[in-house]
Design a protein around this nucleic acid. Structure first.
Lengths: 197, 197
DNA sequence: ATCAACTTGGAACGCACGTTTCAAGTTGAT
DNA sequence: ATCAACTTGAAACGTGCGTTCCAAGTTGAT
């Protein structure tokens, strides 16, 4: 019976996501969000509840559409270390070239910012970290099974270390690091994993 | 002839620094800053010009009193790799225990946040990165001279990699990482540098 | 004692924020 | 054609923001 929405909520969410990603939750005003999504305050609040809820939805959407596919590709790749290399290469390309260059990672930005104060956001960030480490760990197990790794390399610690490295890449890409530098740095780091003890 | 300040500008700057460090530039309102420093709006503006200038001064003070001494200790330490280990241990202790636990690094927070939009801030961040890498590089050269490193380890890339690792530690410490986990992760990472090719 | 130089408290500035409200408009089932 | 259900645009809400202003107070050299 009712009137129906004059816009696509999914597309509005994605546009809002980009604003939050680039500018952060605090700096993304409702005015900017309405301009970016094309819908007005009423529709925005009726659809998403509040700015904070919209941010959370956008963050979850980001993770679902950007992080998770990358994690899955990493974990399911049968090649081992080359999969890790490709993960970093793809990451660096995304961070330093194309429409999102210099935006960093929305999850990493949230970790450093005021967003981090919200318990719900913190929970999402913690889960994201667990999943990232798990994906690295799986890829490292594959690598080990193929004899690509130094024999005494501890997988859990190495996975955690790679996660921190990825955070560093995301962070530094936001403050002007070049793709070239980042690629050489990560490539070398992965090299050290293959050295024999 | 004139009246003299009724407060110590240096101490006010340090109190403001802690507010910016913990909450970021945007979330630190002038009201909170006046409460933290104990001086009122007039004195604050007369002394520091504007909130943005105060932030910049605080950031520079942070780097001068927190980062630089650590960089110097790292670069001047004659022991090589143990100096790097101690650098990370001290960093993790600062980030996870004591009065500043969970605050992360003011510089890293600035990289991910809105502060990063200001060209002057960006310049400070870039210089900080250069100095951090240089300190790592010097320590690695010392380590190499003492035969502590894998022979074919590229120093520049390794230094950059360690810098990214430090960023990751700082970032992750702000979103709840435990000192124990961070220490095991960094300790393992440093182990990989000593493996023979 | 005087006075210029400076600081201080507090009020006020205009503006932008996130959110709410509501009349007018639109929809689709009956 | 009717009507309940819902959306939409625009105005308004109160609050807090960074900043400015000024009268009153304080200082130290003359």
């Amino acid at each position: 019976m009712p009137d129906v929405k004059h816009f696509d909520p999914q597309e509005a969410l994605e546009r809002a996501e980009r604003v939050f990603w680039q500018h952060g939750s605090a700096a993304a005003s409702v005015q900017v969000l309405t301009a970016a999504t094309g819908l007005n305050r009423s529709s925005l609040y009726a659809t998403f509840g509040s700015k904070q809820e919209l941010y959370l939805a956008a963050l979850r959407h980001y993770i679902g559409t950007t992080s998770h596919p990358a994690f899955r590709a990493l974990a399911e790749d049968e090649r081992g270390l080359p999969a890790v290399r490709d993960f970093f290469d793809g990451l660096i390309t995304l961070r330093c070239t194309g429409p999102y260059a210099g935006w960093g990672c929305m999850v990493v930005n949230a970790q450093a910012g005021t967003e981090n104060a919200d318990p719900q956001v913190r929970a999402v960030l913690a889960e994201h970290h667990t999943q990232l480490c798990a994906a690295f760990r799986t890829a490292l197990e594959t690598a080990r099974a193929q004899g690509q790794l130094s024999p005494d390399l501890p997988l859990a610690e190495t996975a955690e270390s790679l996660a921190l490295l990825a955070y560093g890449v995301n962070l530094h890409s936001r403050s002007g690091a070049t793709a070239d530098t980042l690629r050489r740095t990560t490539a070398h780091t992965l090299d050290t994993l293959t050295r024999k003890a």
